[in-house]
């Protein structure tokens, strides 16, 4: 509930960048009036951890990019990765985002019970498997 409100207001103020009273009123009214989906209550600790991971993943992504530039990565493989089960749709979305944002891994499919099918690159020569 509060999370939805904060997200919408952040987007609104970034888009308009205007802190006049009228604009704040419009933003709050629209954020309250827009329909929201009723999901199970999300655990705040999980969200905070996820947000921290989003910040931490950016330098990792650049590191991986430079590793890929300096050493050619030609091995491709598909692995299954496990995260905590029983998550809300928002957290599943964040997991997919975190996996796909780093250039060496791409999430392909999300199974139930917290399994992800992940496509991963490894160091190596061109002579190896091409899936």
């Amino acid at each position: 509930m509060i999370g939805h409100l904060i997200l919408r207001l952040t987007l609104w103020f970034l888009l308009t960048s205007d802190f006049s009273l009228a604009n704040i009123t419009i933003g709050v009214a629209v954020a309250l009036l827009l329909p929201r989906s009723y999901t199970s209550p999300e655990v705040w600790e999980d969200w905070l951890k996820a947000l921290w991971k989003v910040v931490a993943v950016i330098p990792t992504a650049y590191m991986e990019a430079f590793e890929m530039i300096l050493h050619p990565h030609h091995h491709e493989e598909i692995v299954m990765e496990r995260v905590h089960p029983r998550r809300t749709p928002g957290l599943v979305f964040l997991d997919v985002f975190l996996i796909t944002f780093t250039p060496k891994t791409i999430a392909i499919k999300h199974h139930k019970y917290g399994w992800y099918k992940v496509h991963r690159l490894h160091k190596g020569d061109d002579s190896c498997t091409r899936t």
Binding site: Y62, M68, K104
Partner: peptide, 16 residues
């Protein structure tokens, strides 16, 4: 190359 390999390199260029 395979589509997924290109997706990896494109995520370097188009996102980062």
């Amino acid at each position: 190359r395979s589509l997924l390999f290109k997706l990896h390199t494109l995520s370097v260029s188009d996102i980062l």
